[in-house]
Write a protein that binds this DNA or RNA. Sequence first.
RNA 1: GCGCCCGUAGCUCAGUGGAUAGAGCACAGGACUCCGGAUCCUGGUGCGCAGGUUCGAUUCCUGCCGGGCGCACCA
Length: 570
Amino acid sequence: MINPVENVKKTIQEALEKALVILREEGKISFNTIPSYVVEVPREKVHGDFATNLAMVMAREARMAPRQIASLVQGIIVEKNLLALPCEKIEVAGPGFINFYLKPQWLYDVLVTVLEEEENYGRSNLGQGQKVQVEFVSANPTGLLHMGNARGAALGDTLASILEWTGHEVTREFYINDAGSQIENFGLSLEARYLQALGHDVPFPEEGYHGQDIIDTVHRLIQEVGDSYLQLSPAKRREKLVEYALKEKLQAIRDSLSRFGVEYDVWFSERTLHETGKVAEVVKLLGEKGYTYEKDGAVWFRATAFGDEKDEVLVRANGIPTYFAADIAYHKNKFDRGFERVINIWGADHHGHVRRMKGAMAALGYNPEALDIIIMQLVRLFQGGEILRMSKRTGQYVTLDELMDEVGRDAARYFFIMRSADSHLDFDLDLAKKQSNENPVYYIQYAHARICSIFRQLAERGGKQEVLKGEALRNLLAEGVLQEEAELDLLRHLAFFPEELVLAARELAPHRIARYTLELAGLFHSFYNAHRVIGVEEKLQAVRLALVRGVQVVLQNALAVMGISAPERM
RNA sequence: GCGCCCGUAGCUCAGUGGAUAGAGCACAGGACUCCGGAUCCUGGUGCGCAGGUUCGAUUCCUGCCGGGCGCACCA
C-alpha cells in the first residue's frame, strides 16, 4: 500500500509550507492562507523530478513577484535543510517554478517496494472500503451481445478492478430487462417463428426481432416440446416461449461475458421488482413526496423540478408502469442495499435519461451525487468503408463472440479500454482483422514475454536466478549501480503505477491504465535494446535483474487490472 | 429548435490552467556475430473559428462552424 510518488509530493509540500511559515515569521513575506497549489512531475526532465507552481499562485496573496517568492522559498529550504529527501539541487525557473532535482535514491526505494509488494504493488486505500456498485452492459436479454455491449463490458469490468485496487468494496452487477414491452415484442416474434416453423403461414411482426438466432432457438424448443404449444392460449404460449428463450439467451450472454473475462457478482431481474410490488411502491412514494401528478390518465414524474426539460411518464394510461418507473425502483433498491456509491455505464443513446434518474433519486431523498453515470459514446462499425448499423431488430450486428473469434479476447479488451468513454469509437472490422497483430496489446505482452525469456535464458545458462530483494537490494542500489537514463526512466514509471490507479479511480477513466501500460512497455523495449541484462558485470546484472523483475511485476499487475493475460511466450 | 458528447499530425487517438503539445498506424532511412527484430533509433509548419477570464488558455467561460447521439404513455 505504498505510493512512492504521493510520498515524495507530501514531503516536498511539508518543506514548502515550513519554508513559508519561517519566511512569514522573519517578516520576509506576508500571507493569510496558502492558496491551493500543485507539486507535480514536469513534462520535461530538464525541469527536474518534481516542480511546484506555489510561488505563482501565491503572488496575489503575498503581493510579490512570483520569482521573488520562489527565490525566498528555495533559499530557505536549502539554508535550513527543510527537505527530508536526498536532493541534488533546487532551482527557480521560468515564470516562478521551483524545481526539485532529487538524487536517484527515491527511485531505488521504488524498486525495493515493488519487489516487496509484488502482486499487491499499486494497491491503495483511497476508497477506504467504500461500498461501490458498478452496473454495466445490462443488455436486453432478447439477443446477443454487440460491439456497444462489448465496449461497456471492457470499460465496466476494468473500472470495477481499478476501484478494487484503490480500496473500494466493489460489486459488479447486470440488470436483466426481463419485463416490459420489448419482452412482449420478443414473445410475438418467437410465436411467429414457432408457428412458421410448424408450417403455419403467419406474418412476422414488422418491429419484431429478425435475427437468425431466435429461429434457431425456436427449433431447439421444438425438439423438446414439439407442437404442443399450439394447444395453449396465445398469451400462455408466448409466456412459455419467452421463458424458454430468455433462459437460453441469458445463458449465452453469461457465457460470452465469461469468455470475455467478465464475472458478475449479481444478476438482477427487473421482473422481480414488478412481482414484489417494488415498482408500484416507488411510484406511490414519489406521489407522497409530491413529485407526481396525473394527466391524460397517466402518472407523471416531475422531472422538471430537477432541471429536466420535461416531465416523464411513470405509469401509462393502461396501468402498466414504464421502464423508467422500474429503473427508479431498481436504483432505490441499490441504495437500500447499502451501496455508498453507484456507478452506471450507459450508452450515449441513454444520456437523456441521466438528469431525470438523478432527479428521481433526489426526490426519494438519496444523494444524487452518489450516483455516477458514465456515458459511453457509441461504437460505429465500418466494413469496406461503409457504416454498418447495429440493430437487434434487423438482426444485423457483429457479436462479442464473433469479435473474440476474430481478434481474441486480449486484443478486443485492450481495444475498448484504450480509448476514453467520451470518444466516439469507429471500429473498422476489416482493419481489426487485418491488423490484429498490430494491436498495441501485443506490444505490451511482448515486453512481458521478453522479460520471461530473460529469466529462461538465465536458467539455461545455469546462472543465479533468485532476484535480489529487501536490504540486500537496497545496499547494492545504494552503490549507484543503476545510472543509465533508460534505467531511471523505467524506475520513474514504476513509481507512478499506484498514482495512476488513483487517478484512474478518481476520474473513472480506465483508459489511463491502458496508456500507462503501453508507455511502460515502450520504456522497457528501449531499455532492452540499449542495454544487456545477462552477461554484464556481476553487480550490474544483479540490479538489472531486479529492475526487469520489477517491470514484469508491474506489467502483470496492470494487465490484471485490465483483464488481459500476461503470456510467458508469444 | 433544445440537451449531451466530440473537433489535436495524412489516419486512429492520448494529454495538461503553466516553462519546447505526444503515441500508434502509414511513409523514408538506419541498428548489436551477443538476453526473442511482434523490438529499437532517426525524420513533424498540428490543438475547428472568434471573443472573454487569467501573470499564463490547446485546457475554463460565451458565441459561431462542423460531426455523432438524444428529445415516446420504447427501453
